[in-house]
Design a protein around this nucleic acid. Structure first.
Lengths: 220, 220
DNA sequence: GAAGTGATGTCATAATCTGACATCGTCAGT
DNA sequence: ACTGACGATGTCAGATTATGACATCACTTC
């Protein structure tokens, strides 16, 4: 559809603007009111002024309405890792990626809070969240490998990144002071670094022996 | 039901012996024939000589028919960790736990193979497997903490244990030689130890500075 | 202005899962 | 043996999620 068509929204009786967003919004409201399990897709669609069938055109299943953002999030992280300054330790590249999430996640702490509460008390949603985190972990590891980071280190750094993200996110949500997610990310990262510094693993190392590693990637 | 009643199975028209086992068996057969998604619970129940409703009395949902064993497995591991010889490094206690699984998992490699193949090509099943592994990880970490192992180490050792189990299981399944799961477990463990030995983390350490740690647990 | 396209709606249906209640052997106690 | 409790199943009805096939409507393009 052209830009003109979008601007033209007035006359369109059938075409509802931002259907996906309206569905998300309606779903979240209803989930807050009655909980995830007790609201049906039909109700969500109705509140959004749409049909059950249309809901399933925008979301492959009911759970995804709470995870739609994760796709964009993952892309953001991966891109940021790819674009990090060249000679960076694995964990620093990951950190750059995580920093980039802060902007995407800024739908507000309030949203994050209720979303996490919903996920916490529903098994289906917890399952889905785990899958998304696994997907993110492998995506991060891939991105690191594309930077020439060899295998044990790439996976380990990716796992560490997920761990940091989880801790920071949790703290950010439970934090009453107006400290940003970025703040908690940096803090968690520093803690992890302190923890590994004393025992010195490959993930934390500053410059991997300064090998000219750039040549080995090309395109991938 | 008394032992006599069980021995008496002959006369019982309604009561089918080992209903759960028959359902599992029927399910596995059908999954092999048509795949997981294309077989219905009704078909499974029919082949087991039971009703759809009864299937759901034995398994909370269709997926669980492939994961029923995981409960026993987890218990086995946790018990073995609890019963490991007292002054053991975290990873050694975990290793003792994993060793104990070998007996439970011995439903044969053939079963394991088809089961993993089924899980691999179905999203719902992959999700469920992840959940089970998370559950196992936290159970292991708990067991280690009950042995007096402090927090970063307990979780890390648990994660390492899961990683070892996954690798060993995978290799065992893909192995044509008749090497046991135990063999692959030991091998994977050794590889991990070698990997961490050079960098020396807390997980691999032999004796945690020989502190008298036994007094601090009592009952937990 | 005719064909085409994209977003929705409508209808029909499969499949998963649950609650309520009936039935049928078996066991325990009398 | 009679009876009542009990445990495993069956039967029935229904909510809910999810998908396929096809119609419609507004708007675009040639």
């Amino acid at each position: 559809m052209s830009v003109a068509a979008i601007a033209n929204m007035g006359r369109m009786a059938r075409w509802k603007p931002n259907a996906r967003g309206r569905l998300e919004q309606a779903a979240l409201e209803l989930f807050r009111e009655r909980g995830y399990a007790r609201t049906t897709v039909e109700e969500i669609a109705a509140r959004a002024g749409l049909t059950e069938r249309t809901f399933f055109r925008y979301f492959p299943d009911k759970r995804e309405v709470l995870f739609w953002g994760s796709g964009a999030l993952q892309k953001t992280i991966v891109d940021a890792i790819a674009g990090a300054p060249e000679p960076a330790a694995p964990l620093d590249a990951v950190a750059a990626g995580l920093e980039a999430t802060a902007s995407v996640l800024q739908r507000g702490r309030e949203y994050a809070r209720t979303r996490q509460a919903l996920i916490a008390d529903n098994a289906e949603l917890r399952e889905r969240e785990l899958i998304k985190l696994r997907s993110l972990a492998t995506a991060i590891a891939d991105a690191l490998r594309r930077r020439g980071i060899p295998e044990p280190a790439a996976s380990l750094a990716a796992e560490a990144g997920i761990a940091i993200l989880k801790v920071a996110y949790e703290r950010w949500i439970g934090d009453n002071k107006p400290r940003s997610l970025s703040h908690h990310l940096r803090e968690s990262l520093d803690e992890l670094k302190a923890l590994t510094a004393s025992t010195s693993t490959a993930i934390g190392r500053s410059h991997p022996a300064r090998v000219t590693r750039r040549r080995r990637q090309a395109r991938a």
